[in-house]
Design a protein around this nucleic acid. Structure first.
Length: 888
RNA sequence: GCGGCCGUGGUGGAAUUGGUAGACACGCAAGACUUAAAAUCUUGUUCCAGUAAUGGAGUGCGGGUUCGAUUCCCGCCGGCCGCACCA
């Protein structure tokens, strides 16, 4: 077996890729320069948690950002494309507890292990700006930010009911509780009263909501989710004063007569968005957790029993939403603010939430479905006060469907005849005038509780003094460093158990007396709320440059998973506003105001088929590795190591437990980084999931070889920047195809539709591999091709570029420019339709007049056949598009 | 329950403002090269009828607007995601 000396040189990714990576590194080409004259472009992907292994989801995420970064570089921008590690958090502690190691060692070993494959993928990253959020320098700056926020009134401490995760032994923010369970542990969350630090995100509720309007390069879906989360509602608070209990005699009456005697001015405040329907009110409803409900329960066994019954209903949201309406008549009555002498009964109702508004509502059954359900069940009056258009006031009846739409108010005293919005205004005006209430805007958004009873996080820089209370650690004493010598033997927070850290040598900065450190650490979502600024400011042990950070922000293109739509992205938007208000950041130059991310793209996951032994149920954990599965001829599957039958399960996100994980390292070794990158970007639209298949990888690998073969078959002495301006015949056709492909693939990158760019690259490659000429047209098309694949397969592109005599690096080559002359044809193919069905086509000069086109169309043989005996009624000629002949 | 997105060949998916449905790729089939295989190349591939020319149907289902609908409107069915009694 001898090598054919004429055989084309083989492309060897294992040799080529590291070689170019070392060239890039030696020339430091990916460094972003703060002082560049070029316009800036900040490309960022959500930085990874250092679990120790990279997975295909990372490859896809970073490959997308890399396409944008490299493309923008070619477009002449100064590109910042950094990488770091979101390295604080519970997995490190859990690993330490499980294996006896130290969270810090575990974390930094993982980072080292992940950095190597990440670099092997050849992303255009400025590694000089790398940091981990667990670096002392990083959390020192974060402590500074905490103190600045405190000065600005954005940090406070209070005892509050908190979400306690009994598995992770820590507090969770509202955003981190999903379906009543901890977002990470999945444990059912309990409510506890605890002393907590809070970030005052509610200060920015309105601004965070308004800011969404300007984010036109964010997915609509994410903006909607955030708006819903902030949950603004405008309405009024209304005071209902107590009235005398009208029951003749009952334990309830006695109770309230007693209470009224001591509290003459008592009453209940409700929140409503529909004060216009006040005349339709027929009851007041209190949350079971309302102070009056509790007071009543303490004094009346029936009420206590009712509260217990409400508490029995499950905690899952689905249970709560479908639970039947339950009520308890308290016997108490309140005065209607507008109707002299009228009173309303007060009920406790299970559907009223204590956590929103005032924990009490007035019920207007005709115009609120919940109130209607409740009223029907307990036989309370239903009085319509909004008349839908076209209904007759005398006969109108709401039945079982509450009417919440527009209409004219009636049965409503001074509000009669007004529409909904005018009615609301008039009602609020009157309430205010009577001093029964005022207009109020409510938000669902709560302040962000950030205390975590954990070790591996940013220490809260606070000293607790018996006399002075909570005192900030002076800035010159930062950082408050985490001790290394900790023990996880006792449950709970190791910082709290530490023999010396908490109190030894700790004195109050204000009074100098012995004091204690705060032992809670900050929620790690805080770490990821400003890291994008730290990259811009080149954070290092010497601190960071906030002015430089301000210049790089906002991030022009952010790429990450949609699972962060509310949590991370909302926190980061809040932090950026806080940093601006503290004077650390200045984004006055930005057209996006205080927004950190001008453009956001949420990419889909990488999925893979799952297989399970057929003689076990899928639930029983009988998953097998896809690589051990082979297909039989009859379409069934077999497990190769055991010969047992296998069934194919769902195609789902790669996960260790389902054994459908593909290790990027193996793909890189087998096929190269370019192939892995190309695969995750081809075929599926970026926002959708992409299914990993063996055949798909092989296809990507074949394609990379095909590109190389085209380059190997090239002997022309022209360089890749050739312009074949006098091309004709096949050469002209190739030029046209190349420029059309270029136009479309550029548009694809701009629109984040890389799969369509990929299709254009395929087409151009196919045309080139068939093209025989060794002329300027070939080189022009090839030059376009190489530069077009560079953002996707940078190593292959460099190798090709250098092989065909390209100067410098393809990374430094400008993006090819479309020649508009190549996009227009002298002759065009015009489809001919008869009654909307395509029957034939015409090849005609592009500027042929309409009447001539009509003549030719009617003369067409196939058209004639289709028209047959029918009479031509009309001919529609859309120039350059279509001809449609209407015949009947 | 409410809101949003989506539904196109065997598969992933294309398709400017409504204008040739199925680009491109995977898979499959046939062929070339080869002793053979792999690799590569060529051709074909929406479905039905037909050797073919050609004809008919066709973008989840049913209607509508239009000369013309994958695209716009109405009503269903199915899937995914978000919210979940927020007054």
């Amino acid at each position: 077996m001898s090598e054919n000396p004429n055989a084309p040189e083989k492309y060897n990714a294992a040799e080529v890729e590291p070689r170019w990576q070392s060239v890039w590194k030696a020339r430091d080409v990916y460094r972003a320069h703060d002082d560049s004259d070029k316009p800036k472009f900040y490309a960022l992907e959500m930085f990874p948690y250092p679990s120790g292994r990279i997975h295909m989801g990372h490859v896809r995420n970073y490959a997308m950002g890399d396409v944008v970064a490299r493309y923008k570089k070619a477009q002449g921008f100064e590109v910042l494309h950094p990488m770091g590690w979101d390295s604080f958090g519970m997995p490190a502690e859990n690993a330490a507890i499980a294996t006896g190691g130290h969270p810090k060692d575990w974390t930094y070993n993982n980072i080292d292990e992940m950095r190597t494959p990440m670099q092997r993928l050849g992303f255009a990253l400025d590694w000089s700006r790398e940091f981990a959020t667990s670096d002392v320098a990083y959390y020192k700056e974060q402590q500074r930010i905490f103190l600045k926020f405190w000065e600005k009134g954005l940090v406070y401490r209070k005892t509050a009911k908190v979400n306690w995760d009994p598995v992770d032994n820590t507090v969770l923010a509202n955003e981190q509780v999903i379906d009543g369970k901890g977002w990470r542990s999945g444990a059912v969350v309990e409510q506890r009263d605890m002393d907590q630090w809070f970030y005052k995100i509610t200060n920015y509720a309105e601004d965070l909501l308004k800011g969404l309007d300007g984010l036109d390069r964010w997915p609509e879906k994410v903006r909607t989710m955030q708006a819903n989360w902030i949950g603004k509602s405008e309405g009024a608070s209304i005071w209902f004063g107590f009235a005398e209990n009208t029951e003749t005699s009952s334990p309830k009456k006695e109770l309230f007569d007693e209470a009224l005697a001591t509290d003459q001015d008592g009453g209940i405040e409700v929140f409503t968005t529909r004060p216009d329907t006040l005349f339709g009110a027929s009851f007041l409803a209190l949350s079971p957790d309302h102070p009056y409900s509790k007071w009543l329960a303490n004094n009346l066994p029936e009420a206590e029993a009712f509260r217990a019954e409400c508490a029995k209903i499950g905690t899952s949201e689905a249970d709560i939403a479908t639970a039947p309406k339950l009520g308890f008549d308290t016997g108490l009555r309140v005065k209607h603010p507008f109707v002299e002498g009228a009173t309303l009964p007060v009920w406790i109702a299970n559907f009223v939430l204590m956590g929103y508004g005032t924990g009490a509502v007035f019920g207007c059954p005709a115009h609120d479905q919940r109130d209607l359900d409740f009223a029907r069940k307990y036989d309370l009056p239903v009085k319509a006060v909004v008349l839908p258009d076209g209904e007759d006031a005398a006969t109108y009846d709401v039945g079982t469907e509450a009417y919440t739409g527009e209409g004219k108010l009636f049965n409503s005293g001074f509000l009669d005849g007004l529409n909904k919005s005018k009615g609301i205004k008039a009602a609020i005006h009157k309430i205010t005038e009577m001093d029964f209430g005022e207009s109020v805007t409510n938000y669902r958004l709560r302040d962000w509780g950030v205390s975590r009873q954990r070790y591996w996080g940013c220490p809260i820089p606070v000293i607790k003094c018996g006399d002075c209370g909570s005192v900030p650690v002076p800035e010159d004493q930062l950082p408050v460093e985490l001790p290394y010598d900790i023990s996880f033997e006792k449950p709970g927070n190791p910082l709290d158990h530490h023999p010396t850290w908490k109190s030894e040598g700790v004195t109050c900065p204000t009074c100098g007396k012995a004091a204690e450190r705060e032992t809670d650490t900050l929620d790690t979502f805080g770490d990821s709320s400003w890291y994008f600024a730290a990259f811009g400011g080149s954070l290092s042990a010497d601190g960071m440059d906030w002015d430089a950070a301000s210049k790089w922000l906002p991030v022009d293109q952010y790429v990450g998973g949609v699972e962060h739509a509310v949590l991370h992205l909302l926190y980061a938007r809040f932090f950026t506003r806080g940093l601006i208000d503290c004077g650390l950041l200045d984004l006055s130059h930005s057209q996006f105001g205080g927004e950190p991310f001008a453009g956001l793209f949420t990419q889909g996951m990488v999925t893979h088929a799952t297989y399970a032994l057929a003689d076990e149920s899928i639930e029983k954990d009988s998953w097998v590795l896809p690589e051990d599965v082979d297909a039989n001829d009859d379409g069934t599957f077999v497990h190769l190591p055991t010969g047992r039958p296998v069934i194919k399960g769902d195609i789902i996100k790669m996960s260790k437990s389902k054994k459908n994980v593909v290790d990027p390292n193996e793909i890189i070794q087998g096929y190269g980084a370019d192939v892995a990158r190309w695969f995750v970007l081809s075929d599926s639209p970026p926002e959708r999931d992409v299914e990993w298949t063996e055949s798909g990888v092989i296809g990507a690998w074949r394609f990379s070889k095909k590109v190389w073969n085209v380059v190997s078959d090239t002997t022309s002495a022209e360089g890749p920047l050739a312009v074949a301006s006098d091309a004709s015949g096949d050469a002209l056709e190739l030029r046209k195809l190349a420029h059309r492909a270029l136009e479309k693939l550029t548009a694809g990158i701009e629109a984040f539709r890389f799969n369509t760019s990929v299709a254009q690259i395929y087409e151009l490659t196919n045309a080139l591999s068939k093209y025989k000429g060794q002329d300027a047209a070939r080189m022009e098309a090839l030059g376009i091709l190489i530069r077009a694949i560079a953002p996707f397969m940078p190593h292959l592109a460099e190798e090709c570029w250098s092989k065909v005599g390209g100067e410098d690096l393809v990374y430094h080559a400008p993006w090819p420019v479309v020649d508009p002359k190549m996009l227009v044809d002298d002759t065009i193919t015009l489809p001919l339709q008869v009654n909307g069905k395509r029957r034939s086509e015409l090849n005609i000069p592009k500027d042929m007049p309409k009447d001539e086109i009509e003549k030719l169309a009617l003369a067409d043989e196939a058209v004639q056949r289709s028209i047959g005996d029918a009479t031509v009624r009309k001919i529609i000629v859309v120039p350059g598009r279509i001809v449609n002949i209407v015949a009947k």
